[in-house]
Amino acid sequence: MQQELKAFQVGDHDIVAHYSAAEALAYLCEQYNYSDGEVTIDETSAVSDKLLDEPMRDEEGNTLPPLRVDLVAATAPAILHSWE
Rank of each mutant, 00 (worst) to 15 (best):
Q31W: 08
D70V: 07
P55H: 10
Q9V: 08
V10N: 02
L28Y: 03
M56V: 05
E59V: 11
E54F: 12
P66R: 02
V39Y: 02
Q31K: 14
L28S: 01
N33M: 11
H81E: 12
V47K: 06
Y27H: 09
I41A: 13
I79H: 05
E30K: 13
S20I: 04
E59A: 15
I15L: 08
E60V: 13
I79E: 06
V16G: 01
Q31R: 12
I15T: 14
S45T: 13
W83D: 05
P55G: 07
Y34H: 13
M1C: 12
E38N: 09
E54P: 12
L71K: 00
S35K: 08
G11S: 09
A78S: 12
I15W: 02
D53E: 15
C29S: 15
Y34M: 11
P65F: 11
V47H: 03
P55D: 10
I15S: 02
I41M: 06
E59R: 14
E59Q: 14
L67F: 02
Q2M: 14
E4H: 03
T63A: 09
T75W: 00
R57N: 05
D12S: 14
T44Y: 02
D49W: 12
S45A: 14
L52Y: 00
K6F: 04
T63M: 07
Q9D: 08
P65H: 10
S35C: 11
D58L: 03
N62Y: 03
G37H: 03
I79G: 04
Y19I: 07
K6T: 08
S82E: 11
A73I: 02
A17R: 00
S35W: 07
L28A: 04
H18Q: 10
S20R: 15
S20T: 07
L64N: 07
R57Y: 09
A76P: 05
D70A: 12
Y19Q: 15
P77R: 10
E43N: 09
N62V: 01
T44H: 04
S48I: 07
T63C: 05
S48M: 09
V69K: 06
S45H: 09
T44K: 02
Y34T: 06
R68W: 00
P65C: 11
T44E: 03
V47A: 04
A7D: 00
T40S: 08
E4L: 06
P77F: 03
D49P: 09
A7V: 06
A73F: 02
Y27R: 03
T40W: 01
L80P: 01
V69G: 04
A21C: 13
A22H: 14
N62F: 03
T40Y: 00
L5S: 00
L80N: 00
E60Q: 13
Q3I: 06
V39N: 03
E43G: 05
